[in-house]
Amino acid sequence: MKLSKTNPNTIDLIKSLTKQSSAEDAPIWKAVANELKRANRKNNEVNVYHIDKYSDDDDTVLVPTKVLGEGNITKKVTVAAFKFSQEAEKKIVAAGGKCLKIDELMAENPKGSNVKIIK
Rank of each mutant, 00 (worst) to 15 (best):
W29Q: 09
R41A: 12
K37M: 13
N72M: 12
T65D: 09
S55E: 10
P27M: 05
R38C: 05
A94F: 09
V67W: 13
A80F: 13
T78D: 08
L62D: 11
C99Y: 09
I51L: 04
E24G: 03
V79T: 11
P8Q: 05
L13T: 06
K76I: 08
L100C: 06
A39V: 05
S21Y: 02
S55D: 07
N114K: 11
N7D: 15
V46E: 09
P8T: 07
L3M: 05
K101D: 04
I92L: 03
K111C: 05
P8S: 10
K37S: 04
N7E: 12
A88S: 08
G97C: 11
K90P: 01
K90M: 07
E89V: 00
V79L: 03
N34D: 15
K15R: 12
I117M: 11
T18G: 08
A107T: 11
K2T: 06
L13S: 02
K15H: 15
T18V: 08
K91H: 09
N9V: 13
G71W: 00
A31Q: 11
T78Y: 06
T74V: 02
T60R: 03
I102C: 03
T65A: 14
L68F: 13
V32N: 03
L105K: 06
I14F: 15
D59F: 06
S4G: 00
V46T: 15
N9K: 10
P8W: 07
G97E: 10
A88F: 13
F82K: 00
D56F: 07
A81T: 06
S22T: 11
L100S: 06
K119S: 13
A95I: 06
V115H: 14
D25M: 02
V32G: 01
K15N: 15
T60D: 03
A95C: 02
V79C: 02
I92E: 02
N34K: 14
E89C: 04
I28D: 01
Y49M: 12
S55H: 09
N44H: 05
T10F: 14
I51E: 05
I28G: 01
F84L: 01
N34I: 00
L105G: 09
N9I: 14
V61H: 01
T60E: 02
V77F: 05
L17W: 15
A107R: 09
A95V: 14
I11R: 03
F84K: 07
K91Y: 12
N72R: 10
K42D: 14
R38M: 10
R41G: 03
K5D: 00
L13F: 15
K76H: 04
S113D: 14
T65I: 03
W29V: 02
D58R: 06
L100W: 13
N72S: 12
K15G: 12
K37A: 04
E104I: 00
T74S: 15
V46F: 03
N7C: 08
V32K: 00
S16W: 14
N109H: 12
K30A: 14
S21C: 06
P8H: 10
E104P: 10
K75P: 07
V63A: 02
N47K: 09
V48C: 08
M1N: 10
A23I: 06
A80D: 14
K42S: 13
T18C: 04
A26R: 12
S16K: 14
K111L: 13
